[in-house]
C-alpha cells in the first residue's frame, strides 16, 4: 500500500474537501427524502402519526379519482410545457449560436437570463394581468380591432399555466441547447454542404442530431421541476389548471395529512423520473440506431 502513497495524499485532500458539501447534502437532502419515504407508509391519526407500515396512502392516492386525475393532468401539463418551452427555445439558441458574432453572444445570453432572475411570484402574477379578461392582451387586441370580445381561453385554465411556465423556464431550455450547438464544429456543416446537402437537409442530418444532447438536457431540466410548481397553477390556472403540487401543499399545510402528501409527492416524483428516463432511453436508442 505504500506504493499508492503519492496518490492517496492528494486523493485524501480531495475527498476531505468534497465531503463537506456531500455531508450537507446527505443531512439536508438524503435523510429528509428518506423521511418522506418512511412517512408515506405511515398514516395520520388525527394529531398523531400512526407508525405501523401500511400501503393505505398509496392505495388512496392511486384509486381516488381526484388524485389520479390531478396526477395525470399534471403530467400532461408538464409535458405540454416542456414541448412548448423547448420548441420555442430552440430557434433562439440556434439564432444566438449560429447567427450572432461571438462578441454579441454573451450579451444576448445575459438578456435572456435576466427575466429569469427577477421575482418569480410577481412575474407569474403579471401573466395574470396580461392574460386576464380586462388584461393587457385583450385590451390591446380589442383596441386594435382585431377581436370584438375579450379572449377567455387564455386565463384560468391549463393554457395559461403552459404560457406562464414556458416563460418561467425559458433560459433553462435555451442554455443547454445553446451549449450543445456551440460545441458543433462548424466545419462539419461546411463538409455536409460540400458533400451536396442543402442548407435545410444539413440542418436535419447534421445540426439537429448533434444538438440532441442539449435538447435532452433541456427537456429534463424543464419537465422535472415543472411538476412541483404550485404557484403558477394557483395564480393563473383556475380550477381546471390545478396540479398535483397544489394538492401536496394542501395535504401538508391545510389538511395536516403529511403521510398522504408524502405519498402523493413520491408518486409524482416516480412518474416524472420514469418518464424522464424513458425519454432518455428512447433518445439513445433512436440516435444510436440512426447513427449506425
Amino acid at each position: 500500500m505504500a506504493q499508492r502513497f503519492g496518490v492517496t495524499r492528494e486523493v485524501r485532500r480531495s475527498v476531505a474537501l468534497i465531503s463537506v458539501p456531500f455531508l450537507y447534502a446527505i443531512l439536508l437532502l438524503a435523510l429528509p427524502l428518506g423521511a418522506i419515504v418512511l412517512f408515506s407508509f405511515w398514516t395520520q391519526d388525527f394529531l398523531t402519526i400512526d407508525t405501523s407500515f401500511t400501503l393505505a396512502n398509496y392505495r388512496e392516492a392511486l384509486t381516488q379519482p381526484i388524485y389520479t386525475q390531478l396526477i395525470l393532468r399534471s403530467l400532461a401539463i408538464s409535458a405540454t410545457v416542456t414541448v412548448a418551452t423547448v420548441v420555442l427555445a430552440f430557434p433562439i439558441a440556434y439564432f444566438v449560436s449560429f447567427h450572432l458574432p461571438p462578441h454579441r453572444k454573451s450579451l444576448w445570453l445575459f438578456l435572456i437570463t435576466i427575466p429569469f432572475w427577477t421575482s418569480y411570484l410577481i412575474r407569474v402574477f403579471l401573466w395574470k394581468v396580461i392574460l386576464g379578461y380586462n388584461g393587457v392582451l385583450n385590451t390591446s387586441l380589442t383596441g386594435l380591432g382585431l377581436i370584438d370580445e375579450p379572449l377567455t381561453f387564455i386565463l384560468y385554465n391549463a393554457n395559461a399555466v403552459v404560457i406562464t411556465l414556458a416563460h418561467a423556464f425559458a433560459p433553462f431550455a435555451i442554455l443547454p441547447i445553446f451549449v450543445a450547438l456551440e460545441k458543433i464544429d462548424r466545419s462539419l456543416l461546411e463538409a455536409s454542404r460540400d458533400l451536396g446537402e442543402s442548407r435545410s437537409t444539413t440542418f436535419f442530418r447534421v445540426t439537429l442530431p448533434l444538438a440532441m444532447p442539449g435538447v435532452v438536457a433541456a427537456v429534463l431540466i424543464v419537465f422535472i421541476p415543472t411538476i412541483g410548481d404550485y404557484v403558477t397553477p394557483r395564480l393563473v390556472g383556475g380550477p381546471d389548471g390545478l396540479m398535483i403540487a397544489n394538492m401536496i401543499q394542501t395535504q401538508f399545510l391545510r389538511l395536516n395529512n403529511a403521510p398522504l402528501g408524502a405519498a402523493l409527492a413520491l408518486i409524482a416524483m416516480v412518474c416524472v423520473t420514469v418518464i424522464a428516463l424513458g425519454f432518455v432511453w428512447l433518445n439513445r436508442r433512436w440516435l444510436g440506431g440512426d447513427g449506425k
Partner: peptide, 15 residues
C-alpha cells in the same frame, strides 16, 4: 438543481 423545490420543501418540513 433538477429536483422540484416542493420535494425539498416537504421533506425538510417533515424532518
Amino acid at each position: 438543481l433538477v429536483l422540484p423545490e416542493i420535494i425539498v420543501a416537504v421533506s425538510l418540513l417533515v424532518v
